[in-house]
Nucleic acid binder design. Structure first.
Lengths: 198, 198
DNA sequence: TACCGTTGTAAGCAGCTGCTTACATCCGGG
DNA sequence: CCCGGATGTAAGCAGCTGCTTACAACGGTA
């Protein structure tokens, strides 16, 4: 069947596994750049250098492709990150120009794809709920889940302003500086009593 | 058959001004509900109860319609609100189920429409910059504009999570409760020195 | 060598998009 | 009255969408 060994230095000319991988990477990047609806199957296939019919052969539908992208890039990485590091990790991944070698761009996909009565919504909702449940454990308050939602709202909002709106000064700000401001402020959210904040 | 729900002795049967207004209201609502790309000219015309060709006669293009919606609903209202009330006003409009009688839904339009490599981006950018310049005056810090961007990011993020993702507990939370948490926390952002936050 | 499943390709489907065109119909002013 | 612009309508354009189909070419196996 499949000779497990990777070809020494030559690419096989017919390689289903490599084609699948190329499609997944192209889809990950295009979903992140243009959102689910904005990335067409033709553009994904073109970036992968592959005939678009193969996309449907390997993933069944465009939505199937999205599900696999989110499962690989988002959910796996999320489950591998300790809860107390999750927010800062996610924030920094939002703040870092994902020029090259970005494994997980699922939050970009998320914020560029929600907003319509999409079919993408269902697939992305699961990812959002995982984030919520992890962040909810960070506050001792009984309304931890609400505060987690608010924290995630800020995270998404910052990503929206930075990578989508791309407006100065946020777009070009030093990630460390932004992290300091946001994390410093958010520490008050976890402790906020709501009786005036002072 | 087609007499529809037209009051017998009230409206003129051919009224360009009324038709324009109906189109503007339908566009405002559909842009807010589905985003610029998601709202089709056919759906807008249908909701307005108007032939879609009239949309192009009165506004030239779909984008021209958007520009007028934003100018009327967003910019006018923004300029009429005192700076120190702007954030809370905008936050509350995000938190209030805009079931009926919502004059200004421009922030909903904004957050559902950014994210695509849209043609809508240019029109909406102006609105965002107005918000930024007003909010930037609220902090005495030299990086006031950055903090304004961060505040607006939270505002948009909350709107995104509440009206788009619509996930509990944020979606159903008491607006007053959310306002208290957010405003209490944000007061620290205006004062945050960045040397630890505590 | 002959075979046959796997991999890749070209073309086309119906349905939607923003927008245009050619044509009815109304209604006020001569 | 009756004409002409304002208003409303139906049909259709080219281009795009996700997806399917029929077919060609490869390459391991018997």
């Amino acid at each position: 069947m499949e000779s497990a060994a990777v070809p020494p230095s030559e690419e096989r000319r017919r390689d289903a596994a490599a084609t699948r991988r190329r499609l997944l990477e192209a889809a990950r990047d295009l979903f992140a750049e243009r959102g689910y609806e904005g990335a067409t199957v033709r553009s994904i296939a073109a970036r992968a250098g592959v005939n678009q019919a193969l996309l449907f052969r390997y993933f069944g539908s465009k939505r199937g492709l999205l599900a696999e992208v989110v499962a690989l890039g988002g959910l796996e990485q999320l489950r591998a990150t300790p809860p107390e590091e999750l927010f800062e990790t996610a924030l920094r991944s939002m703040l870092t120009r994902s020029a090259e070698e970005a494994e997980d761009r699922s939050l970009e996909v998320y914020l560029r794809s929600v907003g319509r009565g999409d079919e993408a919504a269902g697939t992305l909702r699961e990812l959002g709920e995982e984030y919520q449940s992890v962040l909810a454990g960070l506050s001792g308050a009984p309304d931890g889940a609400l505060r987690a939602d608010l924290a995630m709202a800020w995270l998404l909002g910052i990503g929206l302003m930075r990578t989508v709106v791309a407006r100065e000064p946020l777009a070009g700000a030093d990630p460390d500086e932004v992290c300091r401001l946001v994390l410093g402020t958010l520490s008050h959210l976890w402790a906020e009593t709501g009786d005036g904040g002072a």
